[in-house]
Design a protein around this nucleic acid. Structure first.
Lengths: 154, 154
DNA sequence: TCGATATAAGACTAAAAATATCTTATATAT
DNA sequence: ATATATAAGATATTTTTAGTCTTATATCGA
């Protein structure tokens, strides 16, 4: 497993929505600007979040995204796995059939343990907690327009 | 982070050497056959293991590889990181500068914790333990020649 | 009802990383 | 010397990631 850029972007997106609170409609454009994520890429990620039941997408003029649940109820694990699929640190963990004798394999057992530990840690964290504190790679919430100094960088 | 094939192969290689014990010379060809790793790829991996001080490489006729330390002293973490570099679950962990304010970032803190936990788990495991039990993806130790049914598969 | 605005969905492209393989060089035993 | 074994680096292939583009669809408001 590895946190891909898409996963990172997904976290930024949900974090931005969490700061606005459950149910608040926020346009893709605004989120993209604040979080420094390419708008079209964000669209793809949002679709995955929607399929996972984390956000709702509203089409049409004044459309956008909104959180379906309270930030407290949304874990880091849920968001990440909505984007990159279930975490598995190596092939053996996710697809035991890739290794014929994985149930008696000592190496496999270690990976299994580590994998379960990792998922537990990510599950302990919810977006209310994350939003409460200063957030990585996001411009401060209140000011919207004079946007991210990172965007536009080569 | 993700356990790449190269990392997996590195584990198999050290595991094979561990079963022979510290100091025993084993040819690359034999290891490659038993572990079902492409010989040339194994060569590359072995070089990384050698640079990390885990094995010694002997050139020339009857050359091969051998463990420099007791299997007890070799951790899963050491072998993996010799191959794929220091584990970091996302960019932010390994290169804090990739995110300007990572020290005050709540998301970053979670990743840091998970990363440290993962490394600890892998460090707890040594190759004496692993070799003692049945090993994944390796033909049983004593019989050498009639090799791995996996090899040759498309 | 029409046009402006917004996202949907999937095809397409580009870049990067992973996974080898090949070739030439070097070391060692006999 | 020769046969055998690995070293080291160049090259190639494949897969994954990241990002963009195009056409379609939905909604608001005049």
């Amino acid at each position: 497993m590895r946190l891909t850029r898409a996963g990172e972007y997904g976290i930024r997106c949900v974090l931005d929505l969490a700061r606005h609170g459950k149910g608040t409609l926020v346009s893709r454009k605004d989120i993209a600007e604040r979080t420094d994520v390419p708008p079209h890429f964000l669209a793809k990620i949002a679709q995955q979040l929607a399929r996972a039941g984390i956000i709702e997408i509203l089409q049409g003029a004044n459309g956008g995204y909104r959180l379906l649940a309270d930030p407290e109820a949304i874990t880091l694990l849920a968001v990440i796995e909505a984007i990159i699929g279930e975490i598995s640190l190596n092939d053996c963990v996710g697809r035991p059939e890739s290794c014929g004798i994985s149930d008696i394999c000592s190496v496999h057992r270690v990976w299994n343990k580590a994998n379960q530990q990792l998922r537990a840690t990510l599950q302990e964290t919810n977006f209310a907690t994350l939003a409460r504190e200063e957030a990585c790679c996001l411009t401060p919430f209140p000011q919207t327009a004079p946007h991210n100094p990172l965007s536009g960088k080569k």
